[in-house]
Design a binder for these strands. Structure first.
Length: 837
DNA sequence: CTGATCACG
DNA sequence: ACGTACGTGATCAGA
């Protein structure tokens, strides 16, 4: 194979890796390892791609370099390098040596000087070299045999820069890079350039005059404008900057090219480095995995025998048939499910006592940890949940139960399979930069949700029973009236029978059809109102039976000891929201009189009251912030009524002159914007013509141009990446975007638009929940979170804590994330949920 | 078990 | 020229 040099800018890549990854990645001693991990990830990738036979990782030295002597403020503007990063450099150098990669530094010189000298040596031998760096300065070293591999975002992507690419993208030759820096400067290196000249102007000038020398020779030819004055005033600075930005390739390098021969990574070194720093994914990458989790046989073990395994076992796995403990290379011990043990006559306390060392002290790897907490008690101190991992990595699957996840991963449902799954997921979470979402948001939230589910919401069965009787009477009255007016008896709840009566017997006009027949939904019934006296009764009947069936009868059956325990599904939505099931407490009616009746059955325990805190317009605030829209931001900064302001902007009138009807239309438009508006949808919603809706939307975008720009950009980016991210980095893949079907593709675009908004709101309230829980605990309060309804938190507040809890909620929620617009929260309280509005 | 409908944000 | 708002879960009817 032809010889190839890979010259790596160690400092620049370590910096990049450090800022791209969280410092929560630590070795067994608790020392951060994120920069090392990121560096190795990048190194492996680039080695795989370019097959170097020589590798040199160059580092800066802390001594002053000749550049400091020339220009004392050189690099002075940089923020201080964090100690957590500095500490990783010697660790990395040690690790590089152990895996068979040579590194180099030299007093008085920086990494780029060393790289320059080495690549010129290689050029002398006609040996191609690749310079791997995050620093665009080094583009000046490009030559026929020298290319630069630049890191793109994060630590996962790179871009190969050659003469041709540089010419095409910037219209520059490599030697012009110092001239570019001379004019535009470089904030990261504190190279001043010329004040007021940025990349655009600098490039324009260099396209005319290839160097600053020729530029200044011909300065008199330039028009005598502002730019001219800047150039005249900045001349000294420009030449100084060029000097600083120029990499010397003739430094007296102490080492020689042949000192950097690379013959592949050394297996033993890799293994020891990976184990020391807990880089488990590297073991797998190089197939160095220890065999301890690859079990071949399974034995059942009783709780009494467990103690003999305690020392030998590092992980506990919880899978569907019980607790599995993989101890050595061969055997996996199974403790059967709790129920089986109880059936066999074991005392629950004995079982728990025996299991406690495994659940409380080992790392527990399990699928659906929250349900296991309900089964075994919350004695999980250190867990990894593969259900959560699967969802965070790709949240659009319909199911995340163990069987579905294992099937997709093509793994077996045993301890070895679960271990392998968890390793792959951790690796992928790092690769996709989902550490924050997984480890800082979802994992802590799991415990918060567990506590909320455990606590439940007190509901008065008596109150629900009274309401049931009351509404039964109303429903019977309506039923009789409907039969009388329709002239026959039928099942009003059957859409099929109702359609028959309305559209065949009574010959009412058909408004809309479904796949299977006539539609009778509320929209249709509203259109038919006035065409037959039975219609209003049917509308009323629908509303009452729906609410009674779902929320009175349905909820009554879910009360246990006066309390309803919902289950929060943490892995159900594609956007990052929670959902609630069995029963769903996130869709309890709120709007009507009957809704008020139902909510009044949700009560606080004695000595407590209900406190409810909801974010005001959180989605539009997020839109204002991410779209960086002038008017939208201004409205929120001024605390204005956002719908009135929208109407005012679009209609070109004063905000005080907006009528209620105009405000209502603007409200519908704001909803539409968040959902991915279309004139058709808006027209239908407002009952106006499509043309009128289109005009309204066009005027909206004229005024809110930041929003339009955001929409174009997020859709373009989603098409390019195949996914979108929320403010916290949560990912949703949108495969629909590449569909050839217009409808499917359009759906994808609306999802691409909406997900960063809805999902960021979910991020924010989740962060707030974690903070609320922590703050309540820290203060020693007995108040408790009981519900989350997307933009709203509901708590039991102890009577004497209510005031403090109100402030605590406001603080945690409004400061959960810093945006360019303020987050606002409204808090209310009462004896019942109905009163806390 | 699926479709239609409708409750919530 | 396509046919449309985003995200959920529960209930009922009728296969």
């Amino acid at each position: 194979m032809a010889d190839t040099l890979l010259a790596i800018d160690g400092n620049s890549l370590v910096f990049r890796a450090y800022w791209a990854l969280p410092t929560t990645m630590q070795d067994k001693e608790g020392r951060p390892t994120n920069a090392m991990y990121g560096f190795f990830t990048m190194l492996f990738r680039v080695v795989e791609e370019y097959h170097p036979t020589y590798i040199a990782v160059a580092f800066d030295r802390s001594e002053k370099t000749f550049r400091h002597k020339k220009y004392e403020e050189y690099k002075a503007g940089r923020r201080k390098t964090p100690d957590e990063l500095l500490a990783q450099i010697p660790m990395l150098q040690d690790a590089l040596g152990r895996v068979g990669v040579s590194w180099v530094d030299q007093a008085g010189y920086e990494a780029d000087d060393i790289i320059g000298a080495l690549s010129v040596q290689a050029e002398g031998r006609n040996m191609p070299s690749y310079i791997f760096t995050a620093d665009r300065d080094q583009l000046q070293l490009i030559d026929d045999h020298i290319s630069v591999v630049l890191t793109k975002k994060g630590v996962t992507e790179t871009k190969l820069m050659t003469k041709d690419v540089l010419l095409e993208e910037m219209g520059l030759a490599p030697a012009q890079i110092p001239d570019l820096k001379a004019l535009m400067g470089d904030a990261s290196d504190n190279i001043p350039g010329i004040a007021g000249i940025g990349e655009k102007t600098a490039l324009k000038l260099l396209h005319e005059y290839p160097t600053i020398e020729t530029l200044y020779e011909n300065l008199d030819r330039l028009p005598k404008n502002k730019l001219y004055e800047k150039l005249v005033g900045g001349k000294d600075s420009a030449f100084m900057s060029k000097d600083l930005a120029t990499i010397e390739t003739d430094m007296p390098l102490e080492k020689k090219l042949d000192d950097f021969r690379f013959t592949g990574f050394e297996g033993d070194g890799l293994r020891s480095v990976s184990e020391q720093y807990r880089f488990t994914s590297f073991l797998k990458r190089f197939d160095l995995g220890s065999e301890k989790i690859k079990t071949v046989k399974t034995e059942t073990i009783s709780p009494q025998e467990l103690t003999i395994l305690d020392d030998a076992c590092e992980f506990a796995f919880l899978v569907k048939d019980g607790v599995r403990l993989a101890v050595d290379g061969e055997t996996e011990y199974v403790i059967p499910l709790k129920q089986t043990l109880l059936d066999e006559g074991y005392d629950l306390n004995d079982v728990l006592r025996a299991l406690k060392p495994f659940l409380a002290d080992k790392k527990v790897i399990a699928h659906d940890v929250k349900s296991l907490m309900h089964e075994w008690g919350a004695l999980f101190h250190d867990f990894y949940d593969t259900m959560l991992g699967a969802w965070v990595l790709s949240p659009s699957y319909p199911k995340y139960d163990l069987a579905s996840v294992m099937k997709r991963a093509e793994l077996e449902e045993n301890a070895a399979g679960l271990f392998e799954l968890s390793e792959r997921q951790r690796d992928e979470i790092e690769r996709m930069e989902l550490e924050n979402v997984m480890y800082e948001i979802e994992e802590p939230l799991l415990r918060v949700l567990y506590a909320m589910e455990e606590e439940g919401f007190r509901v008065s069965g008596e109150e629900l029973a009274r309401l049931g009787e009351k509404y039964d009477k109303e429903i019977s009255g309506l039923t009789a009236k409907i039969f009388e007016l329709a002239g026959q008896e039928f099942n009003i709840s059957s859409t099929k029978q109702l359609a028959e009566v309305l559209f065949e017997k009574l010959r009412l006009p058909v408004v809309k059809k479904t796949k299977t027949g006539y539609s009778t939904d509320i929209e249709v019934l509203e259109k038919l109102e006035g065409k037959h006296p039975v219609i209003p009764y049917i509308v009323e009947y629908r509303a009452l039976t729906k609410l009674k069936g779902t929320y009175i009868d349905g909820l009554t059956g879910m009360i246990r000891n006066g309390v309803i325990h919902t289950t929060f599904l943490q892995t159900a939505t594609a956007t990052g929201r929670l959902s609630s099931a069995e029963p769903n407490l996130q869709n309890i009616p709120v709007k009507s009189a009957m809704a008020n009746d139902i909510r009044s059955a949700f009560v606080a325990p004695d000595g407590y009251r209900i406190v409810s805190a909801d974010y005001s317009q959180i989605e539009l605030r997020i839109l204002a912030a991410i779209a960086d829209d002038k008017h939208l931001k201004d409205a929120f900064m001024k605390g204005q009524d956002i719908h009135a302001r929208t109407a005012a902007e679009v209609l070109g009138k004063d905000i005080g002159a907006v009528t209620p009807a105009e405000r209502a239309s603007a409200k519908a438009v704001n909803f539409g914007i968040v959902y991915g508006i279309s004139d058709f949808g808006l027209a239908r919603n407002l009952g106006i013509t499509r043309k009128q809706a289109a005009d309204y939307i066009a005027r909206y975008f004229e005024e809110f141009s930041g929003v339009r720009k955001y929409m174009d950009e997020i859709i373009a980016q989603a098409h390019e990446d195949g996914f979108v991210r929320t403010l916290c980095g949560r990912i949703r893949y949108i495969p629909e975007l590449s569909s050839g079907n217009y409808n499917i593709r359009s759906f994808g675009e609306r999802a691409a638009l909406n997900t960063p908004i809805q999902g960021s709101a979910a991020d924010i309230i989740k962060i707030a929940m974690n903070r609320v829980e922590k703050a309540l605990e820290k203060q020693g309060y007995e108040s408790k979170l009981v519900l989350q309804v997307h933009d709203e938190l509901i708590l039991y507040a102890k009577d004497d804590e209510a005031g403090a809890v109100t402030e605590l909620l406001r603080d945690c929620m409004e400061n959960a994330m810093e945006l360019d617009v303020p987050l606002r929260v409204n808090v209310a309280q009462g004896r019942t949920w109905a009163e806390a509005k």
